[in-house]
């Protein structure tokens, strides 16, 4: 059977989750199966340099555009599906994937499952675990093939990047499809990161009153940098002027929903919890075992936060040096 892993990129970059799609397809494939990576973008260089784990790369390229709109992407993919007759199409849960997956499902009549975290294959049928209600519920679904799955980024490990043999690359000219497309891209803006926007931050390290004084904020800031996180503060910290108001999390500050929320010395007043309890992963460190922050934390620790910051920084530094 054939599995198509949909990948994406804009300008001359590929999105990191593309390698996760290929890895997911690979993990489901058995002897005799074929993993086809489908790519649509400006050029195939980055894709052919990284998608070596796939058995084949089908790359639809249009040098005139930094980005292929989803509508055109879906049309190109439909043509590929018509030719390749895959049993399974994996689409990433992304802005592009949101438009592609159900479009294909509606036009092919195939079943579609979104927000997929796990896939188990049993011959010609699959058992899939998908998130519902913002992750509050997990649904185990049965799906017959052929089918489409929309995969959560981060659910599968990335495939090891490596070049793919040119013999295994099929190039498609995407220009005609782009020209006749009904949705035209007119501008692409890459943000100016000068201003912080906690609401869109994926990782946040938040310090509370437990941080003690202004100088200690820097320790937390260094840890945040190592984690690729934004530094934020609870109300007392911002009130004291240790962090700007823009970085306050909570009712009177920003409501955030990052993938990682590391709370250091935050007790967790209801106003604070209101602003962050929807974070995907909450790790709380507070010496008071009764601190309400632990009610929403997925992991809690009661050690001294300065000891922890020091230890964690050491390990992360060592890890990145490896």
């Amino acid at each position: 059977m054939k599995l198509i892993a949909c990948t994406e990129g804009h300008s001359s970059k590929i999105e990191a989750f593309s390698l996760e799609m290929i890895a997911a397809a690979r993990s489901l494939s058995q002897a005799g199966d074929k993993v086809v990576a489908f790519f649509a973008g400006r050029d195939a260089q980055a894709a052919s340099a990284s998608f070596g784990v796939a058995d084949q790369l089908i790359a639809a390229c249009a040098a005139t555009s930094d980005l292929i709109p989803a509508e055109t992407y879906a049309r190109l993919l439909r043509d590929v599906i018509a030719v390749e007759s895959p049993s399974l199409v994996l689409v990433p849960y992304s802005a592009n994937g949101l438009d592609v997956a159900a479009d294909i499902a509606a036009r092919t009549g195939w079943p579609l499952i979104s927000y997929v975290n796990e896939i188990k294959r049993d011959g010609e049928s699959l058992t899939v675990v998908a998130q519902m209600y913002g992750g509050k519920i997990l649904a185990e679904c049965a799906v017959g093939l052929p089918a489409i799955l929309m995969i959560n980024p981060g659910a599968f490990p990335e495939a090891t990047p490596g070049p793919i043999d040119t013999a295994r690359v099929r190039m498609i000219d995407a220009e005609p499809a782009l020209t006749s497309g009904k949705v035209k891209m007119v501008a692409i803006e890459v943000p100016d990161y000068a201003d912080v926007d906690l609401t869109t931050a994926e990782r946040i390290v938040c310090v509370g009153r437990g941080i003690g004084d202004e100088a200690s904020i820097d320790l937390a800031r260094n840890l945040a940098t190592m984690l690729g996180a934004e530094i934020a503060g609870s109300r007392p910290v911002v009130d004291n002027g240790w962090l700007p108001k823009l970085r306050q999390v909570g009712k009177s500050g920003q409501k955030v929903k990052p993938k990682l929320y590391l709370a250091l010395g935050v007790s967790g007043a209801p106003e604070h919890l209101e602003g962050m309890s929807h974070a995907d992963l909450i790790i709380a460190v507070n010496t008071d075992p009764k601190a309400p922050i632990f009610n929403v934390a997925h992991y809690g620790a009661t050690c001294d936060l300065f000891d922890l910051v020091a230890n964690l920084s050491d390990r992360l530094r060592a890890g990145s040096g490896r």
Binding site: P111, L112, I113, T127, V128, M132, G135, K136, I137, L138, A139, E140, C141, A142, V143, A147, I282, I283, A284, V285, T287, F294, N295, V296, A297, H298, Y299, G300, A301, T302, C303, D304, D307, L308, A310, N311, L312, D314, R315
Partner: peptide, 29 residues
């Protein structure tokens, strides 16, 4: 596709306590 069964995620609310030793906590994290 059909939903066979729903379940609640293991984590959430009652988080795991990693204890009070900074070194082991750092390792786990």
């Amino acid at each position: 596709a059909d939903i066979i069964t729903l379940r609640l995620p293991v984590q959430g609310g009652s988080g795991e306590n990693l204890g009070g030793n900074a070194e082991t906590v750092a390792d786990r994290l």
